[in-house]
Amino acid sequence: SISSRVKSKRIQLGLNQAELAQKVGTTQQSIEQLENGKTKRPRFLPELASALGVSVDWLLN
């Protein structure tokens, strides 16, 4: 799922939720909701993929 991929990649990069949120241009709460499965397809998906160094396709599939 996107939530597990985001969380595992974030941890692999040594980032906390607030640091990832800053790179993406969103809030820590938005990252938390995404990782908890409350958000399925965030509006900041391209920025998120870029910050994590992955493709949008990788996040979604």
Rank of each mutant, 00 (worst) to 15 (best):
S1Q: 10
S1H: 10
S1C: 11
I2F: 13
S3K: 06
S3A: 15
S3V: 05
S3H: 11
S4P: 04
S4G: 11
S4I: 12
S4N: 13
S4T: 12
R5P: 03
R5A: 09
R5C: 05
R5I: 08
V6T: 08
V6L: 06
V6S: 05
V6K: 00
V6G: 02
K7Q: 10
K7V: 10
S8R: 10
K9V: 10
K9I: 11
K9Y: 05
K9H: 05
R10N: 01
R10V: 02
R10G: 00
R10H: 00
I11K: 10
I11L: 14
I11M: 13
I11H: 09
Q12P: 01
Q12I: 08
L13W: 06
L13C: 07
L13I: 08
L13K: 06
G14N: 07
G14H: 07
G14Q: 07
G14E: 05
G14L: 05
G14P: 00
L15F: 10
L15E: 00
N16K: 09
N16V: 05
Q17M: 11
Q17G: 05
Q17V: 13
A18D: 11
A18V: 10
A18M: 11
A18I: 10
A18G: 09
A18L: 13
A18H: 11
A18E: 12
A18Y: 14
E19A: 09
E19T: 08
E19V: 06
E19L: 06
L20R: 00
L20S: 01
L20P: 00
L20V: 04
A21L: 00
A21H: 01
A21Q: 01
A21I: 01
A21N: 02
A21M: 02
Q22M: 13
Q22E: 13
Q22P: 01
Q22W: 10
Q22S: 11
Q22T: 10
K23A: 11
K23F: 10
K23T: 07
K23V: 10
V24T: 09
V24G: 02
G25L: 04
G25S: 05
G25H: 07
T26N: 03
T26I: 11
T27K: 07
T27F: 05
T27N: 09
T27G: 05
T27E: 05
T27P: 05
T27S: 12
T27M: 05
Q28R: 13
Q28F: 09
Q28G: 06
Q29I: 12
Q29V: 11
Q29P: 07
Q29C: 09
Q29E: 14
Q29M: 11
Q29S: 11
S30F: 14
S30L: 13
S30Y: 15
I31C: 02
I31T: 01
E32M: 07
E32P: 00
E32N: 10
E32C: 09
E32D: 11
E32V: 12
Q33D: 15
Q33S: 15
Q33N: 15
Q33C: 11
Q33M: 14
Q33Y: 12
L34V: 13
L34K: 03
L34G: 02
N36S: 14
N36D: 10
N36P: 01
N36R: 10
N36K: 11
G37T: 04
G37F: 05
K38I: 15
K38W: 14
K38E: 14
K38R: 12
K38F: 14
K38H: 14
K38D: 13
K38G: 12
K38A: 13
T39F: 12
T39I: 15
K40R: 13
K40F: 13
K40A: 13
R41E: 11
R41H: 13
P42V: 12
R43K: 15
R43M: 13
R43T: 15
R43V: 14
R43L: 15
F44R: 05
F44W: 14
F44N: 07
F44T: 02
F44G: 04
L45A: 06
L45R: 02
P46I: 13
P46T: 13
P46G: 11
P46A: 14
P46Y: 12
E47P: 04
E47W: 06
E47M: 11
E47A: 14
L48I: 08
L48A: 01
L48H: 00
L48R: 00
L48K: 00
A49L: 03
A49P: 00
A49M: 03
S50T: 13
S50I: 14
A51G: 03
A51N: 04
A51P: 00
A51L: 09
L52E: 01
L52T: 00
G53Q: 09
G53K: 08
V54W: 03
V54P: 00
V54L: 05
V54Q: 03
S55E: 08
V56L: 14
D57T: 11
D57A: 11
D57M: 11
D57H: 11
D57E: 14
D57Q: 13
W58F: 07
W58P: 01
W58K: 02
W58C: 04
W58N: 03
L59A: 00
L59E: 00
L59G: 01
L59Q: 00
L59P: 06
L59F: 06
L60F: 08
L60R: 08
L60C: 10
L60T: 11
L60E: 08
L60P: 00
L60V: 12
N61K: 09
N61C: 11
N61I: 09
N61H: 12
